[in-house]
């Protein structure tokens, strides 16, 4: 054995010991998420299906989206009197557990009924203003981007107004940018449309 290979072997053995000492992170746990989510139901409804038009449904949202928004609340990018306070006490593990739980829940059918004229006009707007490019052709969301289909209308309205005003934080500036092109009328039509769309249930 050469000196060099002896050194290498020494390093490999040392590493085997080190590997055992690597601080590990728990896997995302859906059942733990279910327990941690008990407090959420008061506003977000059973299993994250909101019955309050001003509060978003989070059942069946992409896991990365749920974790991202909780992260933005916790870090202070996104602000809300209740959510900021709740998120402040959450660890990264909590965020991932909650995300895993809500993503696996089934979204309830929307109660909202879209006016026929808005149902006719909105698909062209969703295309024109690039909604479908990121939120997907059925507006079901993906990765860090939320499902809009079947979302609560007052919540959608407040978010779009916030994006347009530059007061609603987003991770990459895309929604702030996209919302600038929307007139108040466009926003009304889109909200009425999105809130009544099937959420894939």
């Amino acid at each position: 054995m050469t000196a060099a290979s002896a050194t290498r072997r020494g390093a490999a053995i040392a590493f085997a010991a080190l590997a055992l000492g690597a601080a590990s992170v728990a896997a995302a746990d859906r059942d733990a998420g279910r327990r941690k989510a008990e407090v959420c139901a008061a506003c977000h409804g059973p299993a994250g299906n909101s019955v309050n038009p001003a509060v978003p449904s989070i059942a069946g949202q992409p896991a990365q989206f749920v974790a991202t928004e909780l992260f933005l609340f916790r870090e202070g990018n996104r602000k809300d009197p209740q959510m900021s306070a709740i998120a402040a006490g959450l660890s990264n593990g909590d965020l991932n557990d909650l995300a895993e739980y809500f993503a696996a829940e089934r979204p309830a059918p929307p109660k909202h009924r879209t006016a026929p004229e808005n149902a006719a006009a909105a698909p062209a707007l969703a295309h024109k203003f690039n909604c479908v490019q990121c939120h997907g052709p059925e507006l079901m969301g993906q990765q860090h981007i939320p499902r809009l289909a079947g979302q609560q209308p007052d919540y959608l309205l407040a978010q779009l107004k916030g994006f347009k005003a530059g007061t609603r934080a987003d991770i990459d500036g895309n929604m702030t940018s996209a919302a600038q092109a929307l007139s108040d009328q466009d926003i009304q039509v889109l909200v009425d449309y999105l809130a009544g769309l099937s959420s894939g249930n």
Partner: peptide, 17 residues
């Protein structure tokens, strides 16, 4: 085109996942 950048998992993910 629907090509878009990817966002990180801001809370991180466990290596077990």
């Amino acid at each position: 085109s629907t090509l878009h950048p990817f966002a990180p998992n801001l809370a991180g993910r466990s290596a077990k996942d």
